[in-house]
Nucleic acid binder design. Structure first.
Lengths: 134, 134
DNA sequence: ATTTAAATTTAGAATAATTCTAATTCCAAA
DNA sequence: TTTGGAATTAGAATTATTCTAAATTTAAAT
C-alpha cells in the first residue's frame, strides 16, 4: 500500500494542539488561556505560552473550541459540543452552560435584522448565581 | 425653603461622570474605553484615564451604559436605552445593535435552567457583515 | 537517505487593556 | 469653617494577549 503515513498537518493536529484540545475537553470548568497553559505544561512540559495562544486560535478557527468573553478579565474556552448558551454571575463570575432551544423565528429575525451571514447565535444571561443570591 | 441645593453625590453624577455619559450617548458608534477617554478629554481636559475607567464602571453598575465584550481587543460601551441584542462581524469586528423581542418562554427557560436571579439577557449573533460577505 | 520549503514551536520581548496606589481635591453635612 | 468620606488625578503596576526572530519539525521532492 502507498501512503500509509498520515499527514498530521492536513488535520492540523500537532502534538501541542492535541494537548491543548485534550486539556479543554477534560476540564471540569471553562479555563482561561493561563489555566490551559498550566495544565498543558503538565502533559507536555516544553510547551510554550505562545503556542497555547496559537493553538487556541487555531482550534477556535477550526471550530473545535469556543471562546467566551465578558467585560472582566481573561477569555475562557470551552469544548464545542453543540450550540449552547451561557449564564454568568455578575457577582462572582461563575459561568454555566445552558441548552436552550432557540425558536427558528428568532434566529430568522436576528439574521434578517442584522443582514449578517449567520455563523453562530447564542443567548447570554447575566444575574446572580444561586450562591451569590442568598 | 430648606434644602434647595441638590446633593450631586446622591445622584452620583459628578462632572466627570456626566461627561463620560455624554460622550457615550452622543457617539455614533460603540466606543472603547480609550476612545471615550480621547473624547472626554476634549470636553474636560483634566480628566484622567483612571477616572474614565472608574466612571465607566460606575455608569455600568448604575445601569446607564452597557459593556460589550468579545474575545478580541477592548470592551466597548453603549448607551443603555432599552434591552437589545448584538451582531458582531467575525471578520472585521463591526458591531450592530438589534432589537429582537425574546419570547417570555425563552427567558423563563433560561432562568429556570441556570437557576440564576436574572438581571439581563441578550442574544449575540456572530457572522459576516454585508460588506465582508461580498 | 538527504534536502528543501513551509509551517510550527519556542522564549522572551513588546504591546494593549485594565486596575491599583497614594496623594490631592471636592463636596455636603456638622 | 472644619471635617470625613468619596472622587479624581497621575502614573506605576498588573494582567492579558500578540509579536518577533531563531530553532525545530514535518511532508514532499530529490
Amino acid at each position: 500500500m502507498k501512503n500509509a503515513k498520515i499527514n498530521i498537518r492536513e488535520l492540523g493536529l500537532t502534538k501541542q494542539r492535541e494537548v491543548v484540545l485534550q486539556v479543554i475537553r477534560n476540564a471540569e470548568k471553562h479555563l482561561t488561556a493561563n489555566e490551559v497553559f498550566d495544565r498543558a505544561k503538565q502533559l507536555l512540559p516544553t510547551i510554550s505560552f505562545a503556542t497555547v495562544y496559537n493553538s487556541l486560535r487555531f482550534l477556535k478557527d477550526a471550530g473545535h473550541i469556543g471562546e467566551i468573553s465578558f467585560g472582566n478579565g481573561a477569555s475562557r474556552f470551552d469544548a464545542l459540543t453543540s450550540r449552547h448558551d451561557h449564564a454568568i454571575c455578575t457577582n462572582c463570575g461563575k459561568l454555566v452552560d445552558m441548552e436552550i432551544e432557540l425558536p427558528g423565528e428568532i434566529v430568522e429575525l436576528a439574521t434578517k435584522f442584522s443582514k449578517f451571514k449567520l455563523e453562530s447565535i447564542e443567548l447570554t444571561l447575566r444575574g446572580l448565581c444561586p450562591e451569590c443570591n442568598k
